[in-house]
Amino acid sequence: MWALILLTWEAAFRLVEWNVSLFPAPSHVANGLAELFKVRPLTGSRPLIEGPIVSLVRLSIGFAAALAIGGVIGLLMWRFLEFDKMVGPLLLGFQTLPSVCWVPLAIATLREDETRILFVVVMGSFSAIAIALRDGLRMIPPVFQKAGLMLGADGWRLYRYVLLPASLPAMATSLRQGFAFAWRSLIGAEMLFVVMTNQGLGLVLNVAQGARIKASAAQVVAVMMVMILIGMSADRLIFAPLQRRVRERFGLG
């Protein structure tokens, strides 16, 4: 089906001869993609090779930090109702805030663009992680805790051998949610903070648009395709299967 659409699109383009920079055909996008894999004379880098690597390294660091912060906050919100009443609504508010809204604050408070990007990634995703974890932990049936206590799992062992494994479905959901938020925040931040020495995908997208060449729209679409592909593969190959496996084990369907 998709092949047919693309073919029709290409054929229509050849027949009508639209303006390439306004509405590129699939073949132009393919060309743009190929161009971006080649070494750029100005920077001496291959945008679509180095770009994704730089982005994924940043994502790993930012996501790990967000998981640590969001994980602790989610745990505290679950454990202490008063704390949840205090910060829960605020975090829900954070979650509704587009992550680029953190950019001005990053500029005002941080010096390095690299740390500013990480700041936006963390702020854009930790609240989603915390909320998903809290909600998941609340779903743990109270009988697990009772059963654990009756079977001698007291103190830290109740956490290690009962509550931790019982929270696996919650953690899988929170991981998946968090990744989606972190990825979006990262690309947004990379588009706005220009780190020329370390060009992430977001910047590559910006540069592609600014190339002022005939096929700039084609290159933009090409970079976006790569972004979609990375985000989708991470979800399809890592986070969704992880969540499915946990849910199957737990018999949650």
Binding site: V143, V162, P165, A166, L168, R249, G251
Partner: peptide, 8 residues
């Protein structure tokens, strides 16, 4: 509600 641990 049995309280068996589903991860085991």
């Amino acid at each position: 509600d049995h309280g068996l641990f589903p991860w085991l």
